[in-house]
Computed example of a mutant assay.
Amino acid sequence: MTAPIETTGAAAEAQPEAVLAGAKQSQIQGRSLGRIAWNRFKRDKVAVAGGIVVILLILMAVLAKPIESIFGLDPNEFHQDLIDPALLSPRGSWGGISLHHPLGVDPQFGRDVLTRIIEGSWVSLLVAGGATMLSVVIGVVFGVVAGFYGGWVDTIISRAMDTFLAFPLLLFAISISASLQDGAFGLTGLPLRIAVLIFVIGFFNWPYMARIVRAQTLSLREREFVEAARSLGARGPFILFRELLPNLVAPILVYATLLIPTNILFEAGLSFLGVGIAPPQASWGGMLTSAAGLYETDPMYMIVPGLAIFITVLAFNLLGDGLRDALDPRSK
């Protein structure tokens, strides 16, 4: 019978079992993928700032009508007494900025610019959000089907994507919007214009999302968890919606946040050309149209809606870049 081996000093401290036995259970905690992504995102101060601005913009758009009702604001209320008829510009300096009109008034009718910016926010975000949702739904469905099944299914969907990408979208949007101004599908006025913009922008932008989803699906369908599902008898629809789609959430979310500012710019461009949101409904692109010939007498009327578009697009782009870095498993 051998004597027990004595351990002293550094040798005793080096035993990992003793260290683990003495450690508290609360000190050893696992982190989910969502927690890891959130910690990465919080470290990116620029992306956090962009996310805060996006949240404020969404709140302003959602609460636009209640804010106008509570404070008695009317985006189409004329204040001709604030316009200098000789100079055709607001009285005072900096576009008529005052305590009652913090961003001034427009040089044509004296309407409050801040109220029109708030009113135009829900139009821009509604059109951009609806078009993005439509693009994401169509693009994800066709992209995941093309990437998973391959063969002739992939060929047909890929050629359809090439066809849609070849469309002159701007000219097509102008022609469709101009031809449906009077009424269609039981809609007239502002609801019709918003529905047409959402359909045109969203329906013809889905190939961009479909290409990204298809490329990710081609990579994921060869992974071990897909083979394991097949070996257990899972069929195509189950694998698509229960195995592949959860792993595609990150790229879909990132590209959707980057697609929204593109759609905001597209809607503003159509309104600027006169085939988007029609006056007297306030829109940021329409305000730029009104300011086009008045920038010499009242440059503030062009700067304010331009800054609104710039800040919104920049905030969404910063948020999208931050989400892309946070959700990338290869980032540190």
Rank of each mutant, 00 (worst) to 15 (best):
R111G: 01
K24F: 03
F241Y: 14
P237Q: 01
D162V: 06
L327S: 08
G276H: 02
I70F: 15
M60F: 12
L232D: 00
L190Q: 06
R211P: 10
V62K: 09
F203Y: 10
F185Y: 13
P251V: 05
D154E: 15
V213Q: 07
A234F: 08
F203M: 14
M209I: 15
S93A: 14
Q108E: 13
L33T: 12
P237H: 05
T8P: 00
I174V: 15
N317Q: 13
V213Y: 02
Y149E: 07
I52Q: 01
A11W: 00
A291T: 03
L197V: 08
P85H: 07
N205V: 00
D112L: 02
M161G: 10
D154F: 05
G104W: 01
A229D: 04
A86V: 15
G269W: 02
A3K: 12
E296C: 00
G233L: 05
L327A: 07
G189T: 06
S283Y: 07
F142L: 15
D162A: 12
M60A: 15
P329W: 08
N263L: 13
V62C: 11
P75E: 00
A160K: 00
A256M: 08
L134R: 08
I252H: 03
T2I: 12
G34D: 05
F164V: 15
V249D: 00
G95Q: 06
T262H: 09
E224M: 11
N205C: 03
V123R: 15
R223C: 11
R111I: 02
A178C: 04
P261Q: 09
P85M: 08
Q216L: 00
R35E: 15
L273Q: 09
P299K: 07
G130S: 10
I239T: 03
V313Q: 08
Q281H: 14
G104V: 00
T132M: 08
K332E: 13
E243M: 01
E227G: 12
P251W: 04
K65Y: 11
D81F: 06
R211M: 10
V140C: 12
V123A: 11
P66W: 04
F238S: 13
I198N: 01
I194S: 04
A49P: 03
P246A: 10
F203C: 10
Y149G: 00
R330E: 12
V46I: 15
G104C: 08
F167E: 03
G130A: 09
G186D: 09
R159T: 08
L59G: 12
I194N: 03
T7D: 00
I277A: 04
S175M: 15
V54M: 06
L126R: 10
P90E: 03
A184P: 04
G151T: 01
F164D: 07
I176G: 02
D81M: 06
W94Y: 14
I28H: 09
A11K: 12
I212K: 08
P305K: 01
D328F: 02
P191E: 07
D84V: 06
G130L: 11
I83L: 06
P75Y: 01
W122I: 06
L314Q: 08
A229I: 02
R324D: 06
P191V: 09
T8S: 13
L240Q: 01
R242A: 13
D182R: 14
N39G: 11
L114Q: 04
A166C: 10
F142T: 15
D328W: 02
P107S: 14
L73I: 09
A292I: 00
G186S: 10
